[in-house]
Design a protein around this nucleic acid. Structure first.
Lengths: 128, 128
DNA sequence: TTGACAGTTGAGCAACCATTCAACTATAAT
DNA sequence: ATTATAGTTGAATGGTTGCTCAACTGTCAA
């Protein structure tokens, strides 16, 4: 039942049956949040570049900072976000901390994402 | 060569060879931006729920608004973002506009994303 | 112990963004 | 024409977020 007590919505229910059916098959709120949080981490060009870099080679914070021409602090902040998202792991060796990718999901996701980007180019932009 | 003129970085190059090698194999700046922009669209729980809903059934703006208990305006704004990202298509029928998913990449990406989320739960949170 | 460097962290700031609000267009019915 | 509903849009707003800056920890060397 598409509840009438839902006062936020400013319109009539047009297809109540569809709304009810979809509502039943929606994932848990928690999963939705976790999933969008996960993609949020990938949705920043700095973090994206860090991941691309780590996909090529294990690197320390300074190396990444030089590669991306940014401060250690900025990189460190973003690495923490990647750690929280469970995307990278690290090991300490003396003074330096080496970061690397944690699993292969990222690689797969990137490939599909790239497919999508390229299709977008071909179909709508018609560039190059 | 890891350029010394890059003044933003506040540290020494520790592994110049690695930095140089990775730098050569990094994707174009433009691709990085497009890819992170694409994931940015997925990185919002409202848009995420809209996509999940449209994956179940074609729906009009009002239906989605009722389903998510939000205003038509808020939904319409987010649908525009999804349109710009080339993720949804739409057709008009009288007064109502029906939206649906545009391709199957999203489904694939979500599956992998979910795998990642679930692994995170099992390994680090140990819940359920 | 002292100094130097790798890295982390918290506060602060500026830019960004999701939602609200109000005004608008489009289609259909009376 | 008028009214009603579906949907869009731009400006404003409050919350979020990425980077900077300064202070801090951790490790090593002298």
């Amino acid at each position: 039942m598409a509840a009438k007590e839902d006062l936020f919505c400013d319109c009539e229910v047009i297809h109540g049956d569809i709304v009810d059916a979809v509502k039943q098959r929606m994932p848990d709120e928690e999963d939705i949040y976790d999933l969008s949080d996960f993609f949020k981490v990938l949705g920043d060009s700095t973090r994206m570049r860090i991941i691309w870099a780590l996909d090529e080679s294990e690197m320390c914070v300074c190396d990444i900072a030089v590669l991306l021409n940014m401060t250690k602090s900025a990189i460190s902040h973003q690495l923490r976000a990647l750690r929280n998202a469970n995307l990278v792991k690290f090991r300490r060796e003396g003074k330096t901390v080496y970061y690397s990718l944690k699993d292969d999901h990222v690689r797969d996701i990137f490939e599909i994402g790239m497919e999508h980007i390229k299709e977008k180019y071909n179909k709508t932009k018609q560039k190059k």
